[in-house]
């Protein structure tokens, strides 16, 4: 099976006040299309930085990232944005819905950004799929945390992404709701054949994925989980 994401010899260094701080070094791994992958590690190990780099939200200091046969290093800011819109979906720990838009409008945003004429139909279908068809005209503040995350999942899948990055998707939810969201995420992922990359502290969740990338001190760690 071909790889959708290849990370080769990746390093990331931040410079602040003339002092260099390397947060990731010599990272190499690949993810096959349709697989689910968990990135785990202790706080400060570089999980979120790695996710950001893989999703084209930040730039590598050294090495290359190839996503769906496109080398991210050479793309401009707007090309990266276009690529995210066409190939990538995101689910965040704190939902990140736009408070001024209804649930339906939030789901429509990625489609409208790419210029889709009739975004309403697909967006309603997705909301119904996550069980919120009857809440489509509600604003984020009128929804519970779990409902907000379901809207976020619907939004993440609205542009039919080939790869979905989820950053601690259950981190702000209670255990029961968290489990429901996990299941929903995996179900839709399977239905759509999307590749799923999850950053998590939750080892039980990590064990449900096809592949685990473990980080420690900014480096890949091949030890016991």
């Amino acid at each position: 099976m071909p790889y959708i994401l290849t990370v080769a010899d990746l390093s990331k260094t931040y410079v602040s006040n003339n002092e260099a701080l390397t947060v990731l070094s010599n990272i190499d791994f690949s993810i096959k299309k349709g697989d689910s992958v968990a990135i785990i590690g202790p706080s400060g190990s570089g999980k979120t930085t790695l996710l950001g780099l893989c999703a084209g939200l930040d730039r590598v200091t050294e090495g290359t990232i190839t996503l769906n046969d496109i080398v991210l290093n050479t793309l401009s800011e707007d090309q990266l944005a276009q690529m995210r819109n066409q190939h990538i979906g995101f689910v965040f720990q704190n939902f990140q819905l736009i408070p001024t838009l209804t649930a339906l409008e939030n789901v429509m945003v990625p489609l409208e950004l790419r210029g889709t004429k009739n975004a309403t139909g697909p967006a309603i279908n997705l909301l119904e799929r996550v069980g919120l068809g009857d809440r489509k005209n509600h604003y984020p503040t009128q929804l519970s945390g779990g409902e907000q995350q379901r809207v976020a999942i619907a939004r993440a899948f609205s542009n039919n992404p080939e790869i979905l990055f989820a950053d601690e998707p259950t981190g702000n939810l209670d255990a029961e709701t968290g489990t429901y969201i996990e299941e929903l995420l995996f179900e839709i992922n399977r239905e759509k054949g999307t590749t799923l990359v999850i950053v998590t502290h939750d080892l039980d969740l990590a064990k449900k994925t096809d592949q685990i990338v473990q980080l420690k001190g900014g480096k890949l760690f091949q030890g016991e989980i």
């Binding site: 939200l57 276009q82 995210r84 990140q96 945003v109």
Partner: peptide
Amino acid sequence: FQRMRENVLLRTIGASKAQ
């Protein structure tokens, strides 16, 4: 604060600077 949050979010899900 609110604007930044929204704009960064839009940027994350693929909005161009022009948009």
